[in-house]
Design a protein around this nucleic acid. Structure first.
Length: 420
RNA sequence: GUGACCAUAGCUCAGUUUGGUUAGAGCAUCUGGUUGUGGCCCAGAAGGUCAUGGGUUCAAGUCCCAUUGGUCACCCCA
């Protein structure tokens, strides 16, 4: 039997209602904040991600789905959306048509990691990017939108974590301070962290190794080495969040794995999922557009994992989805009336009702059982004496009452059901 | 990429410890419980090469090995 590729899943009809529900909330919230949807290709030239995300990052160095196409071009299935959105913005000069571009997306992403709870190789994110302004109001807006969406899905048990990485210069200054500090403890670091000492020293803060955490507890913090401008920016972000009534934890150790971040970084973490508890992450990336050959266009954005959010919703049982119902099930009482049944179903469907009927020539009892299984609001029976008199039998499935109606009363019936 | 655990019906699982007739249950599916009527209930049916391949044994769903797949965790991230 051929099965879905490791780390990919089918979203079956029974899963769709919760996806639709989430997507509806996502588009509503983004519309309220006046973000416009953008859709970029599923694959891009590999160099876009290598340059945009950073060669040294885990995503680029070991997680990308990269292949050579028949034209000899190295292409990669998108592992995240920001690089593609910024590429599209530059390519179509959106920044010149409008000074601030506020964009959102919902899209599959691809990373070749070992699957586990809340992690897949094809997964889905929604997210937003605001380009063209340094205003800390936008940093806050990102966190608030993400929080509002997650909140509207009924999730509790959330923590908003924020940090500032400052501007590149202050970060470089800090790195040399941190390097000096860690040199003294180098031999006590875990093997992984020894590697990170050279590749990405800030990430040692993320280590879960006890020996590393012990050392880092006393390490100098970036937040104490920020320049005045970065501090100002961070303070404004925090005050906007407070004014929005959002509780947050400043986590000086929140370093994220993408190279392009500067100033604000944030995450929303859930206590209701497994080990992969980060529902959403983002930050400011003022240097990225330039890095990709565009103008000096500052940006800030976030991405949220749909599978992870839905997993949290299931674990908290937070979604109150309405029962799936159909409007009408048509039961034919007479094998000779199949064409009439077909036409009746068609007419009612074209008038806007959700109508089902039997395709297996089953008994009336079996048809009624199926009508019940579909949660039909009404059953319309066609055949017998009533049909001879030009009438149909209408049964209300919630109270069991039934009566005859004339064929010319269908318009009333449609309006009545639509009005329910 | 590393590690641990798991694999019996469409789904959830008994049965494996202590090997022994035709491998069970619940749910789901289908049919029926008198002419043309659902839910609840009742009766019945269908559905399994016990993941695959090898080994031990008189005998393997059960013990051993390998392979494949899955789950969870690490790394890292949504």
């Amino acid at each position: 039997m051929i099965k879905a590729i490791t780390g990919t899943r089918d979203i079956l009809p029974s899963d769709i209602p919760k996806w639709n529900y989430l997507e509806k909330i996502v588009s509503e919230v983004f519309r309220n904040f006046n973000y416009k949807e953008i859709r970029t290709p599923v694959f891009e030239e590999t160099s876009l991600f290598a340059r945009g995300i950073g060669e040294a990052t885990d995503i680029v160095s070991k997680e990308m789905y990269t292949f050579i196409d028949r034209g000899g071009t190295s292409v990669t299935l998108k592992p995240e959306m920001t690089a593609g959105v910024v590429r599209a913005l530059i390519e179509h000069s959106l920044d010149k048509k409008q000074s601030v571009n506020k964009l959102y997306y919902v899209s599959p992403m691809f990373r070749q990691e070992r699957p586990q709870a809340g992690r897949f190789r094809q997964f889905h994110q929604f997210g937003a990017e605001a380009l063209g302004s340094h205003d800390p109001m936008l940093d806050s807006e990102m966190i608030i939108m993400a929080y509002d969406i997650i909140n509207k899905l009924g999730l509790k048990n959330l923590t908003v974590k924020i940090n500032s990485l400052g501007i590149p210069q202050s970060r470089e200054n800090y790195k040399s301070v941190l390097k000096k500090f860690l040199e003294k403890h180098f031999n006590s670091l875990s093997p992984e962290s020894k590697k990170r000492f050279d590749t990405n020293i800030l990430r040692i803060f993320d280590s879960k190794e006890e020996q590393d955490q012990k050392i880092m507890a006393d390490a100098p913090l970036l937040i104490n080495y920020l320049d005045d401008e970065s501090i100002q920016h961070f303070e404004k972000v925090k005050s906007y969040l407070s004014s929005a009534g959002i509780n947050y934890d400043v986590d000086p150790k929140l370093v994220r794995g993408l190279d392009y971040y500067s100033h604000t970084t944030f995450e929303i973490v859930s206590g209701s999922v497994g080990s992969q508890s980060s529902l959403c992450g983002g930050g400011r990336y003022d240097m990225l557009a330039k890095e990709l050959g565009g103008g000096d266009i500052p940006g800030v954005g976030f991405a949220a994992g749909i599978e992870r959010i839905l997993l949290a919703c299931e674990n908290e049982n937070s979604l109150n989805l309405p029962e799936e119902k159909i409007d009408l099930y048509i039961v034919s009482l007479d094998k000779n009336l199949l064409v009439e049944t077909f036409k009746l179903a068609l007419e009612l469907r074209r008038r806007g009702l959700t109508v089902e009927t039997d395709y297996l020539s089953r008994s009336v009892k079996a048809k009624m059982r199926e009508a019940n299984k579909y949660n039909a609001k009404f059953v319309l029976m066609i055949g017998g004496d009533e049909f001879q008199k030009g009438e149909l039998v209408l049964k209300n499935m919630s109270n069991g009452e039934q009566h005859s109606i004339g064929k010319n009363e269908l318009e009333n019936l449609v309006n009545k059901i639509k009005g329910l």
